[in-house]
Design a protein around this nucleic acid. Structure first.
Lengths: 124, 124
DNA sequence: CTGTATCCCACTTGATACTG
DNA sequence: CAGTATCAAGTGGGATACAG
C-alpha cells in the first residue's frame, strides 16, 4: 500500500470503501481521541474511564472501545467474577495511535490563539 | 490554554462547546484531510481541486474549503474576471495543519497491515 | 467557472430503560 | 459493574437544479 501523500491526484484517494478511512474515523471520532489519550495514562475500568472522560454516555463509550478493540488498539480484559470487572488498556499499536492523535490534538490547542484570531478578524 | 494531554481527567475535556473540537472536525472531516494534503502540492483552482481529489461533490468541496478558510488554514484568492477564476492555497498555519494530518494518515497507511491482521483474526 | 439553494437520507449520537 | 436495546434527535453528506 502506497502512502496517502503519494496517491493524491490519482482518483482513488481515500475512496468511500478505503479501509484506512474506517480507522481514521475510529481514531478521530467524537470520543475516539479522548479514549486513546485517556488510556495513555494506563489501564482503566469501564466506569473509571467514563468518570475520567466526563460527558460520554455508556453507549458511546462501549461503542468507541469496541471499535478500537476491533482495530487492535485497545486490549479488553474481562475478569470472570461477580460483579463483573473489565480492564481496558492500549496495545503497542494503540500506544502509537494515541501518540499520533495526541500530537494532532496538542498542535490544535497550541495553535488555537492563531485560529481564534482569524475567527475574530472575520467577525469584524 | 493547557494542552489536551494535561487536562485529561479533570472533567472539562473536549466538551461539546470546546472550540478546538470544531477545528479537529474540520481537519479530520471526510474531505478536510484530503483537501489539506492536496493543497500541500501547491495552489489550485476549484475545478482543478475537484478533479484532483475525485468523488467530492461541489457542495462538499465548497463547504470544506470555506471551513478551512474560516480557520485560517486556506487562502482564497478570487480574480475579478469572467468567467470567475479562484485560487486556493495553504497559509503557513494550514501548511502546519496539513503536515500534521498527513503524518496521521501516513501512520494509518503504514500500520494497515497490522490492523488488517487483527480484523482477519477476529473474523476467524 | 465557481459556487449557492434545496431536498433528502443515512448515519451518529444521546437519553432512557433494562439485563447478566 | 458493565454493558445492550430501543427510540428520538441532530448532523454530515450527496444529487440536483440554479445563479452570478
Amino acid at each position: 500500500m502506497q502512502k496517502l501523500s503519494e496517491r493524491i491526484g490519482r482518483g482513488d484517494l481515500m475512496a468511500a470503501n478505503c479501509p484506512s478511512r474506517e480507522v481514521l474515523k475510529h481514531m478521530t471520532s467524537r470520543w475516539g481521541v479522548v479514549v486513546l489519550i485517556a488510556l495513555e495514562g494506563g489501564t482503566h475500568r469501564f466506569a473509571e474511564l467514563r468518570r475520567r472522560i466526563g460527558g460520554v454516555s455508556e453507549r458511546m463509550l462501549a461503542q468507541t472501545l469496541r471499535h478500537l478493540e476491533e482495530d487492535g488498539m485497545v486490549l479488553r480484559t474481562a475478569h470472570d467474577v461477580v460483579p463483573p470487572h473489565v480492564d481496558y488498556c492500549l496495545t503497542p499499536l494503540g500506544a502509537e495511535a494515541a501518540s499520533k492523535v495526541r500530537q494532532l490534538a496538542d498542535w490544535i490547542e497550541v495553535s488555537m490563539p492563531r485560529i481564534a484570531a482569524q475567527w475574530e478578524k472575520r467577525a469584524s
